[in-house]
């Protein structure tokens, strides 16, 4: 029974994450960029970079989707290979991250930077601080708990409770997550007020920061599950079940976000601007 649920999650992530979510977020990102100076864009219809870059990004996503579908059919039904199931869940997402971030970087350089700024630009002189949006104890507790998890693995490694390879992979994975979260805090605080405020209102930044806090606590949750499995040989959830749960949660969020009326309105505006 559980296997079928996992296969369903595996298959559903192809249309939901690789196609629908990629398309939604690509269009939103391009909407943010072109919102820099809509009048200039209207005066320069020959500037078709947004359309071209979006097509290339989606071509990459379709390629990953097709490869993912083929691999899933091959390794789940035609020539079952259970050892590849985690890869079937994770690798398409990892590939999508690479494609999307490459697209974001290229679009920022060749679209956002190329569009001249509007005549006048306003900004607040207020200093945006993390603890003005999220309670300090919540953030400190999250990082402290992660430090405890790291400490437990360091102890376990030096006392040979777990192998060095396992300990280092857990420590490395969690450290990378924490570094990414710190970086994302800074990015979210420093980003300009943009179309995310149009979707989520004035709380957009707060929501973004709370999502990052959620990721910090996700690190704790995964750390606790790993400790239970590695040190106490308790596996309430198998590895594949954890990743399937994560993928499922992500799919639910992406569907809700993508179907929100304000998101649809933003996408409709983008489609009107760059109608093929």
């Amino acid at each position: 029974m559980t296997d079928w649920i996992i296969y369903a999650v595996m298959l559903l992530q192809i249309p939901i994450l690789l196609i629908f979510a990629a398309s939604t977020h690509g269009k939103i990102m391009l909407s943010v960029f072109v919102n820099k100076n809509p009048q200039w864009l209207a005066d320069h219809p020959e500037f078709d970079q947004p359309k071209r870059y979006y097509k290339w990004m989606m071509a990459g996503c379709y390629t990953i989707a097709v490869a993912s579908l083929a691999a899933t059919i091959q390794w789940v039904w035609l020539q079952p290979a259970p050892q590849y199931r985690v890869a079937l869940l994770i690798l398409p997402l990892a590939a999508l991250m690479v494609v999307f971030h490459g697209f974001a970087f290229a679009a920022f350089k060749n679209i956002y930077k190329k569009i001249p700024s509007k005549g006048t630009v306003k900004a607040s002189l207020g200093h945006r601080k993390l603890f003005s949006y999220v309670p300090a104890p919540l953030v400190w507790l999250g990082f402290t708990l992660n430090a405890v998890v790291l400490g437990i693995y360091v102890w376990a490694m030096f006392n040979e409770v777990v192998t060095t390879r396992i300990a280092l992979s857990r420590i490395g994975g969690l450290s990378v997550l924490l570094l990414i979260c710190l970086f994302m805090f800074k990015m979210e605080l420093q980003r300009k007020t943009n179309l995310m405020e149009e979707i989520f209102g004035s709380n957009a930044r707060k929501l973004g920061l709370y999502s990052i806090v959620g990721a910090v606590y996700l690190g704790v949750a995964v750390g606790v599950l790993r400790i239970a499995g590695d040190i106490y040989q308790l596996k309430p959830l198998t590895e594949i079940q954890v990743f399937a749960l994560f993928s499922f949660g992500l799919q639910v969020y992406m569907v809700i976000f993508g179907l929100m009326p304000k998101t649809r309105r933003l996408i409709a505006n983008y489609d009107k601007l760059f109608a093929t």
């Binding site: 700024s117 900004a123 002189l125």
Partner: peptide
């Protein structure tokens, strides 16, 4: 409108906001 002790935004924040 700004008094002694008031903090100004970090350079990167203001640069991002003013493009």
């Amino acid at each position: 409108q700004l008094v002694p002790g008031d903090s100004l935004p970090p350079i990167r924040q203001l640069a991002n906001d003013l493009e």
